[in-house]
Amino acid sequence: MAKSNEPIVWSLFSAGGVLTALAAPALIVLLGFAIPLGWITPSFEHVDGLVGHWLTKLFVVALVSLGLFHWAHRFRFTLIDIGLKSLDTLITVACYGGAIVGTGVAVYVVWL
């Protein structure tokens, strides 16, 4: 049997799942509740310094990109499992291609 190259996409899927599970709830609490409801009131300089830092940008891009790869992998198998296996190549290109495009958009928005 041929060795599979699935580890590439599976590791991105896996990393996306872990990162999203860890970071998304914290970000939702922070950006969705804590700041809008005034539980914490960071200064403009503080927030500006944080979001302008290259590490923060890298984190945001990684979160968006790996999250998209997680979606791509899961969605690809969902479509195959509901009986669209004959379209495997198209589905694979569309799903992972979508994640790659999304990563590009994230880099553009965050960095450029």
Binding site: M1, A2, K3, S4, E6, W10, F77
Partner: peptide, 14 residues
């Protein structure tokens, strides 16, 4: 691993 790491084994599992 020839079998287990192949597409027909672990990578087919969702």
């Amino acid at each position: 691993q020839e079998v287990i790491a192949s597409h027909d084994a672990i990578w087919n599992c969702t």
